[in-house]
Design a protein around this nucleic acid. Structure first.
Lengths: 346, 346
DNA sequence: TTTTAACACGAAAACGTTTTCGCTGGGCGA
DNA sequence: TCGCCCAGCGAAAACGTTTTCGTGTTAAAA
């Protein structure tokens, strides 16, 4: 149970000063070859590694980036994390995660825990509760303390920072376009309440696509699900809501859902009503998750490219960290979506 | 772009010493009420928070635990992380993640990055490559340097540390039991190569269940999939392998798969062959993921309780960290599995 | 008035680095 | 012989805390 060896211990053992050891290990020309070799041999023998914490304190950099996401048991966020971790490690950074669990308080607490020197900057996606309460003081405070933030997916325009998003409107417009082009005459949308920005934007894309096709939107065909329904237990009532939607509008022949789960459940309902997919009714979802790929029929979906978002976000943040001198200039990167066509559309 | 305020700055502003400020903020009785209030007011005004890195250096503890998992885009591991994060935060710890990506080298590098003072202890699940190469020196080294490790799910007995596992054998035996009890006469298993310990153990459970029912195992019914097949692209060939399995053995009326994906794909093949699930053939998978729940028919599955594993692992680690004096005593916690019955079995 | 004790505060060390600057001794040129 | 330069090394500061151990002042006790 020996502790890790330090410069001081090496210095004592070899009867030289700490400075000499440090310099020897960094191959300084100030140190004679003799001493250098002696020190390096000793250090290798005892498997010396500089203490990261001491370095962080000295350099006022931790080489660590903090990631705060609402939820990790979620294919999209997991992919983003993977992307972040990938480029972070490549560029010599560690990743420390905090889960807000969609709660405002946990988001704030988590940020405070990390902002006190543990990390150099944040990558985050905002919790639903924060979006609802529209209280963004914690973001502004950390930014004004000189700690850069990169937001992804769920962002807010008022905060000045780098952002990585997808073009939700365009993505969903393309999806609905596809349905219309495939001959659908009555396309329904299953979306979220409007305070979730991505839900709102995707609904707008839906409306735009209809407009392009000179179709008037029918409010009967727009189902705005209350988010609480997503909390696992309430899936049944979500199913019922969708069933009622279908029964109210027998003519529905196309469904666009703003996430994967809604689409999968809608397909289930359709199948229960003996509708043939994709002959009687076609489906498109959002987010390229594991459900879409392995469902039967497999689900055509708008791919969000989570990993790419993560990679881009990490690059943006690290660039900012390593060019502190540059003038403040914030960027918003839009990742292209694309439609992955599978069996749920013709 | 002001930096975070420090004790020294407060001391300067208020014309007292650093020690006084520190003591005042910690409500030391050494400090007069006057000074205390003055300092605290000033600190609150400037939103002072102690620098974590400095504290870590001083206390030789980081209050951070390192988690290394093979993959994060995986429902089970994501759940474990959630569990870890939950209790870690509750007990005042942060979580820093590293992904080994199933690679030995990345596992070693990641551990080295973190072991140099960044964290107090590890929670990890071993990468496939490490299991294959059976090179465990990095684990032994970190342990002998006084850094505790807790392993979960994929563990190795030879390493002395706390472990959190499920009873793979019992879990799969129960599953196969269920199939046999339901009247299956020819139960196939889709498993992995034996070097993946969980695959091996689950296969053993399968064999044991057969034995209990006085049935002799048929090697034709045992499909050991090469893991490379899991790398997304190779799913097609996996499908073909399963198809051949079914065609070779027309009598198969029950399938036990050691993970979710194998089971889902097998069901897909069965449906393609016009077999009715569960009347003609029944399926049980392992791991309680999102696919099982939302597949049609939904998949009966052995639940691994990932979140519970994570919680338990974090508790074990933190207990060890906070009772360093205790004598070395390692524990292996076995989490109970249970069978979640859904539509794929009668 | 002198001693003592309580009170309020400050100096300094420690955690483990890196880096700047200064010091020493020896070799060299003049 | 004197002065100078340079190689090789060490002392010390700095990063931001906490904590131990003084130290000075004042009021109470003798």
């Amino acid at each position: 149970m020996k502790r890790k060896i330090t410069l001081k211990q090496i210095a004592n053992e070899l009867d030289v000063s700490i400075s000499t050891v440090s310099k020897a290990l960094r191959n300084s020309i100030e140190i004679s070859e003799d001493t250098r070799e002696k020190v390096q041999a000793f250090a290798k023998l005892y498997n010396y590694r500089p203490n990261n914490i001491a370095l962080s304190l000295k350099n006022r950099k931790t080489k660590t980036i903090g990631v705060i996401i609402p939820e990790i048991v979620h294919h999209f966020f997991a992919k983003v994390i993977r992307g972040i971790e990938l480029v972070a490690n490549k560029r010599g950074y560690n990743v420390i995660v905090g889960l807000s669990n969609e709660s405002f308080d946990k988001e704030v607490i988590n940020m405070q825990m990390l902002a006190n020197g543990s990390i150099d900057g944040f990558i985050l996606s905002i919790s639903k509760e924060t979006l609802q309460q529209q209280d963004y003081h914690h973001f502004n405070e950390t930014i004004s303390q000189g700690m850069p933030i990169v937001m992804f997916d769920r962002v807010i325009n008022e905060i000045h920072c780098d952002k990585v998003i997808i073009d939700d409107m365009k993505g969903s417009k393309n999806a609905v376009d596809k349905l219309l082009k495939n001959g659908c005459k009555h396309v329904a949308i299953i979306t979220t309440k409007d305070y979730v920005s991505v839900g709102r934007l995707r609904t707008q894309g839906y409306l735009q696509a209809l407009e392009d096709y000179k179709m008037t939107p029918d409010s009967n065909l727009i189902l705005k699900v209350d988010d609480e329904l997503l909390s696992e237990d309430h899936l049944d009532s979500l199913e019922k809501e969708i069933e009622e939607l279908f029964k109210r509008n027998k003519k529905i022949d196309g469904v666009f859902a703003v996430n994967e789960l809604y689409a999968i459940i809608a397909m289930k309902v359709a199948r229960k009503m003996n509708l043939n997919i994709p002959d009687d009714i076609q489906f498109i979802g959002f987010t390229d998750g594991v459900l879409s790929k392995h469902a039967t029929p497999s689900l055509t979906t708008v791919s969000q490219h989570g990993q790419e978002m993560g990679e881009k976000a990490a690059d943006l943040l690290i660039n900012k960290l390593e060019n502190e001198d540059e003038e403040e200039q914030y960027e918003t990167v839009v990742i292209e979506t694309n439609l992955i066509e599978r069996e749920s559309t013709k």
